[in-house]
Amino acid sequence: KYKEAKESFQRFLENHEKMTSTTRYKKAEQMFGEMEVWNAISERDRLEIYEDVL
């Protein structure tokens, strides 16, 4: 289930129109921090996936 959450988060970042190569992690956290997809995984994993996607 956790792996699915990580994959969902990656797809979310890859497909969200507001995500560009210039979007900083903290800005994304402000935009999406309340969303379930954002909070479903640990911050360490979130940051790792974020850096992989951008």
Rank of each mutant, 00 (worst) to 15 (best):
K1E: 01
K1N: 14
K1T: 05
Y2Q: 09
Y2S: 02
Y2L: 08
Y2K: 09
Y2W: 01
Y2E: 12
Y2G: 06
Y2T: 01
K3A: 00
K3W: 00
K3P: 03
K3C: 05
K3L: 05
K3H: 00
E4Y: 07
E4S: 13
E4D: 08
E4I: 03
E4W: 03
E4C: 03
E4M: 08
E4P: 00
E4T: 07
A5I: 02
A5V: 04
A5N: 13
A5H: 09
A5R: 06
K6D: 04
K6H: 02
K6S: 04
K6M: 12
K6G: 03
K6P: 02
E7A: 12
E7V: 13
E7Y: 06
S8R: 15
S8E: 14
S8Y: 05
S8C: 14
S8K: 11
S8D: 14
S8P: 01
F9Y: 07
F9T: 06
F9K: 01
F9H: 03
F9I: 01
F9D: 10
F9N: 07
Q10G: 08
Q10Y: 01
Q10E: 03
Q10H: 05
Q10N: 07
Q10R: 15
Q10M: 13
R11W: 07
R11M: 10
R11Q: 12
R11G: 07
R11Y: 09
F12R: 08
F12P: 07
F12G: 08
F12W: 02
F12V: 04
F12I: 03
F12Q: 05
F12H: 09
F12T: 06
L13P: 04
L13E: 10
L13C: 04
L13A: 08
E14R: 11
E14C: 11
E14W: 06
E14S: 11
E14Q: 15
H16Y: 03
H16R: 04
H16C: 15
H16I: 00
H16E: 13
H16M: 06
H16T: 10
H16S: 13
E17D: 12
K18Y: 09
K18D: 14
K18M: 08
K18S: 13
K18T: 09
K18A: 14
K18L: 14
M19W: 05
M19H: 14
M19A: 08
M19P: 03
M19T: 03
M19F: 12
T20A: 04
T20D: 07
T20C: 12
T20L: 14
T20R: 08
S21K: 13
S21H: 15
S21A: 15
S21W: 08
S21R: 11
S21Y: 09
T22R: 10
T22H: 11
T22I: 13
T22E: 13
T22A: 12
T22G: 13
T23Q: 05
T23F: 12
T23M: 13
T23W: 11
T23C: 01
T23Y: 00
T23H: 04
R24W: 06
R24L: 15
R24D: 15
R24N: 15
R24S: 15
Y25N: 07
Y25G: 06
Y25A: 05
Y25K: 02
Y25L: 02
K26R: 11
K26P: 12
K26M: 03
K26I: 12
K26Q: 14
K26C: 15
K27Y: 11
K27V: 15
K27P: 01
K27I: 05
K27A: 15
K27W: 09
A28Q: 01
A28T: 03
A28Y: 01
A28V: 05
A28W: 00
E29A: 05
E29V: 02
E29F: 01
E29C: 07
E29P: 04
E29G: 01
E29S: 03
Q30I: 07
Q30S: 10
Q30Y: 04
Q30N: 01
Q30A: 10
M31S: 06
M31R: 04
M31Q: 10
M31D: 04
M31P: 00
M31N: 01
M31A: 03
F32T: 07
F32W: 12
F32P: 05
F32Y: 12
F32H: 02
G33E: 05
G33D: 01
G33S: 11
G33A: 06
G33F: 00
G33H: 03
E34H: 14
E34Q: 14
E34Y: 11
E34S: 14
E34F: 04
E34D: 14
E34T: 13
E34C: 05
M35L: 14
M35T: 13
M35S: 11
M35C: 10
E36S: 10
E36Y: 02
E36D: 13
E36P: 12
E36A: 12
E36Q: 09
V37Q: 04
V37S: 00
V37D: 15
W38H: 00
W38T: 09
W38R: 13
W38D: 07
W38L: 05
W38P: 09
W38Y: 07
W38V: 07
W38K: 10
W38F: 01
W38Q: 12
W38A: 07
N39F: 00
N39K: 13
N39T: 07
N39A: 01
N39C: 03
N39Q: 10
N39S: 06
N39P: 00
A40M: 10
A40L: 02
A40T: 05
A40K: 10
A40R: 11
I41Q: 06
I41P: 02
I41R: 07
I41S: 05
I41E: 07
I41A: 07
I41W: 01
S42A: 13
S42C: 14
S42W: 00
S42V: 06
S42H: 08
S42K: 11
E43S: 04
E43T: 06
E43F: 01
E43N: 08
E43V: 04
E43K: 02
E43L: 03
E43H: 01
E43P: 08
E43D: 10
R44E: 14
R44P: 14
R44H: 14
R44T: 15
R44M: 15
D45S: 05
D45W: 00
D45K: 00
D45V: 00
R46N: 11
R46D: 03
R46I: 02
R46K: 04
R46L: 00
L47I: 14
L47S: 08
L47D: 00
L47Y: 13
L47E: 11
L47Q: 13
L47P: 08
E48Y: 07
E48L: 11
E48V: 12
I49S: 07
I49H: 02
I49R: 08
I49N: 03
I49F: 02
I49V: 11
I49P: 11
I49C: 07
I49Q: 04
Y50N: 04
Y50K: 03
Y50V: 04
Y50A: 06
Y50F: 15
Y50R: 08
Y50I: 01
Y50C: 02
Y50H: 05
E51M: 09
E51K: 14
E51F: 06
E51R: 12
E51D: 09
E51T: 09
E51P: 09
D52A: 12
D52N: 15
D52S: 14
D52P: 01
D52E: 15
V53N: 15
V53A: 04
V53C: 14
V53I: 09
V53G: 05
V53H: 01
V53Q: 13
V53P: 09
V53S: 06
L54S: 03
